[in-house]
Design a protein around this nucleic acid. Structure first.
Length: 151
DNA sequence: GCCAACGTTGGC
DNA sequence: GCCAACGTTGGC
């Protein structure tokens, strides 16, 4: 199981909004940046997601789960030369809100995060999170954490 | 194929 | 609101 970080503007689509969708979840769409799309296409059912709010909040605010494989965006159909969805969309559901959101400031102050893509490529909206870092982030969020894979 | 101009993102 | 970092576009 891999872990990825997804950025969202809370004014556009907040983690609270995702939570409110419940087990139905949402298709994570609207990504156009090629590097971000490469990571989206690599997602598998069961992968863990860390949801980061940009703008005023600038913190990881909750966790979510990938519930299916990436598919084509119905509004922008097309495949890559490798036969993968060009503008990939991934179904996700919220898991839990963080009891303690982990702020960008905190991550910047921690040497363990020095090579983290979130800090090195501030404009990338979808990125993989190394396993050791993901574990550390989950401990910091200190909420009801995901324990099991979906059935 | 290069690169200048322009657009977008997101932290400050 | 500004601007740095990137990505994209289009003229050549």
């Amino acid at each position: 199981m891999a872990t990825f970080l997804l950025k969202t503007e809370p004014t556009e689509f907040s983690f609270a909004h995702l939570l409110a969708k419940g087990p139905a979840g949402v298709p994570w769409n609207g990504v156009s940046n090629n590097t971000a799309l490469i990571h989206l296409r690599a997602m598998k059912r069961g992968d863990l997601l860390l949801i980061y709010h940009t703008c005023d909040q600038r913190a990881i605010v909750g966790t979510a789960r990938v519930t299916g494989l990436p598919t084509q965006d119905p509004t922008r159909p097309g495949l890559t030369p490798q036969g993968l969805p060009k503008f990939a969309v991934v179904p996700i559901v919220a898991l839990a809100a963080a009891t303690t959101p982990l702020s960008l400031t905190q991550m910047k102050a921690d040497p363990d995060f020095a090579t983290f893509t979130l800090l090195k490529q501030p404009r990338l909206s979808v990125m993989p999170v190394p396993e050791t870092l993901a574990a550390k982030i989950l401990r910091a969020l200190d909420g009801p954490l995901p324990k099991t894979h979906p059935k």
